[in-house]
Structure formats: structure tokens, C-alpha cells
Amino acid sequence: MTASADSTSPDLALAGAIFDVQRCAFHDGPGLRTTVFLKGCPLRCAWCHNPESWSRIPPEAAPAFRERRATVGELMAIVRKDRHYYDASGGGLTLSGGEPARQPRFAAGLLRAARAEGIRTALDTCGCAPPSAFALLAPHVNLFLWDYKATDTAGAPSLHRELTGRDPGPLLDNFRRLYAGGADILLRCPLIPTINDTPAHLEAIAGFARDYPRLAGIEIIPYHAGGLSKYDRLGLPRPALKTRQPDERTKARWLEFFQARNLPGITLA
């Protein structure tokens, strides 16, 4: 964070599109957190649990979702109500989505306002935004929750593109740039049996642990089949994902893969 970044008071009138605010989130970073979900996502992950985030425009068909435009000031009024829980647990504010870096000015404004009140921040991102967006955001983020979704094999068609709709290159470039700039990053890897848990992918995750020793951690997030009814409410076809929820044996097998490579720091979320 540069000194000038916070020398002016935060712009509380800055507004953005969100689709939910979850208080007392247990799984969106350290401690107990308030998570603001920003709308808009350039990816189309085959297992996405938040399809209502995809479009920036509220769909007519989804009146039940808590979609709205909200200002930094409004959101901070909610965020600061739980400060005693953040303080007790080491938690804070998390921005998630969608891809929060697709609304960089609004996201940065909100993060900055939280930090100005001494509330720690996290940004949950898939990395798919222009480098300038991350440059704007980085000074206000205590911890990046970085999703790493799939690994391509040389010579084969891109699995990442097949599963998410985008090439992985620019996303990884963003990651490397932030890492080099000294950002704290927790790598989060959703593993979906038979879909992305290929040997190449597990090997790539292990590679992250070796190549980026300053990572705040690497978490494996076992696939969970929930939230599919959201597709029905949005009038979208449910993803035709041929998979199942990983059983204990599968999870143990994943962990053994990393333990065998002497990487006990890779844990199940």
C-alpha cells in the first residue's frame, strides 16, 4: 500500500453491482468474514455454483436473488457491524463473485474503505481481469484467495478452456506479477473427480508449492454438488457435469499424492 492510496477519505458513494452479502462466512479466508459477492464473470466454469453472478445485468427471471446496486457507504455500514467478530477470529471483509476484479474501481473503493477502518481484507479471484485491475486492487488487499482451476497438457486441446471458457495464460501472468510484487496469496484448487483431478493438474499444484514458497497456503476444495437449483431459477440448463461428490477415499488419494512429494502444506479446505 502506498502512502497516497489512503491519504484521501474513501469515496462512499461509489456504487457497484452485487448479488449477495453473506455475514459470518466461515470459508472465505481467515477467521469469520463478511463476504460481498460482486456480479460479472468472464469465465463459465462447468461446475459453477454462482451462475447468477455471470451477467452484470440482473436477469428478469431471478427476482429471488438479492441482486442490487450498492454503494461503498451502504456496504460498509453492514461490514463494520461485525468488527468484534473479525477481531476475535482474525477475520474481515472478503470480496467474491463472480469475478470481483471485473469491477476494479468499486472493489478497490470498498476494500480501501474497510482498510481505512482497520478491517482486514481478502479478494477471492480467478485471476481473469486486466493487469491494471490487479494493480489498482493490490494495495488494498491483505490476502488474495486465488482459484487455480485446471492444467493443460502440452499438445492436447486446452482443458482449462474447455472447462472455463478461457485460456489460462493471462490468468497465470496476473498471478506471477502479483506474487513478484509481494502479495500474500492463498491458492485454492477446486478438485472435481474425473473432471480436473488429472495427474498433470495435481503435479502443477505441487509445482506451485515448490516454485512459490511464499504462498500463504494451498487448499484443495473438494467438489460439492450444491446450488444447482439456481440454474433452474435462472432458466439456464444445469451443467452436464459427469462427476460425483468425492468420497473419503478419493480425498485421501489426493492428499497422498502431495504427501508422497513431501508437501504436507497442501491441505483439504
Binding site: 459470518c24 466461515f26 477467521g31 468484534h84 476475535a88 477470529s89
Partner: peptide
């Protein structure tokens, strides 16, 4: 699940912050 080993510290912190308040 909030009383699993991974989540218990957060649950305990939640309660203790509430009681403190």
C-alpha cells in the same frame, strides 16, 4: 461441520466475541 477441527476455532471465536460484546 462448524464443530469440526478445522472450524471449531472460528466457532469458539464467534461465541467468545458475542459473549464479550
Amino acid at each position: 461441520s462448524l464443530f469440526s477441527p478445522a472450524s471449531l476455532p472460528k466457532t469458539a471465536a464467534l461465541l467468545s466475541a458475542w459473549f464479550d460484546a
